[in-house]
């Protein structure tokens, strides 16, 4: 195979695949969101902004807020747990580091849905947590943990924590330890070193990790279905419902596009942040 062919093959493959399975579908979803719903054909002409108007009805605005709030909470908890964890792991000798990171992704092999079922056995009235609390006499009555927003956040953190940790570890890997030593020699306290050196230098990892937790969290309908209570908590539930149950595709598509818009806004912030600390974003981001 000569130069031209190999090169052309790689380029054409890249463009065709991404065009056909990423660009065109996104455009189609955008288009669907401004079409009219139809029981027989899913979406038909004429174009209308109806679905978009409905998006702003208080019922749905409420779901938006609830979803954003739960996702934010999940992200913050993942960050608080994941940051020190990533720091410790990144500083370990290579062999240990590899093993721990691997152990981090092993649970994924057991499908996340199956693991979510197991969480029910942890949080239930007769579950492990309540058994421990009752056994130690902390509470007299079992706490209602399952079927609450708490359970949803517990499940989301559980499923998404590795997505926070992995970018952070690679970000810590690039942290130049001589900088920290120099600062220490110059008398900077741990807090000063943390605030002025460690955090700014690992910022790309923090942002990348946060995005990879925050965005998927809004869509995890099965976590809310199994662990959540009487209320629709996540955008994912609404979107799935519109596409597979109510079959109002334009409305479901409008929700998806709204989610894409939120994503685009956050990505834009991410690029700005990356530029500010003088790094490239996107595929060139070293922390990913």
């Amino acid at each position: 195979m000569n130069l031209l062919n190999f090169r052309r093959f790689a380029i054409v493959l890249t463009l065709v695949w991404l065009g056909l399975f990423v660009l065109v579908p996104h455009v189609l979803v955008l288009l669907t969101s401004v079409m009219s719903p139809d029981a027989q054909h899913l979406a038909v002409w004429p174009l209308t902004l109806n679905s978009w108007e409905r998006l702003f009805e208080p019922v749905y605005a409420e779901v938006f807020w609830r979803s954003l709030w739960l996702s934010t909470l999940t992200t913050v908890i993942c960050l608080v747990l994941g940051y020190p964890f990533a720091y410790i792991v990144a500083k370990l000798p290579n062999v240990w580091r590899g093993v721990l990171l691997f152990l981090m992704i092993v649970p994924f092999w057991t499908n996340s849905l199956i693991r979510t079922y197991a969480i029910k056995l942890i949080l239930g009235n007769k579950g492990l947590v309540n058994a421990a609390l009752l056994g130690t006499g902390v509470v007299d009555e079992p706490l209602q943990l399952l079927y609450t927003p708490f359970a949803v956040v517990f499940g989301l953190v559980y499923v998404l924590l590795p997505f926070m940790v992995l970018p952070l570890v690679s970000s810590f890997d690039k942290l130049d330890s001589t900088l920290l030593e120099a600062a220490q020699d110059l008398g900077a306290s741990f807090w000063a070193r943390f605030r002025l050196i460690i955090v700014p230098l690992t910022m790309p990892g923090i942002i990348a990790g946060s995005l990879m937790v925050f965005l998927p969290a809004m869509g995890m309908f099965y976590v809310a279905d199994l662990l959540g209570g009487a209320k629709n908590l996540l955008l994912g539930n609404i979107i799935k419902n519109q596409f597979l149950v109510v079959r109002d595709w334009p409305f479901g598509a409008a929700f998806s596009v709204a989610l894409i818009v939120i994503m685009a806004g956050l990505l834009w912030l991410y690029f700005l942040a990356n530029r500010r600390i003088n790094r490239q974003g996107g595929l060139d981001d070293e922390s990913l």
Binding site: L28, V29, L215, S256, L259, M263
Partner: peptide
């Protein structure tokens, strides 16, 4: 390269919809 980045960042639910539609 932006498209790849979008795929990586998109919530699964959005990707699921786009795949279903295409």
């Amino acid at each position: 390269s932006s498209l790849l980045f979008i795929v990586m960042m998109s919530p699964d639910i959005v990707l699921a919809i786009t795949f279903l539609v295409i």
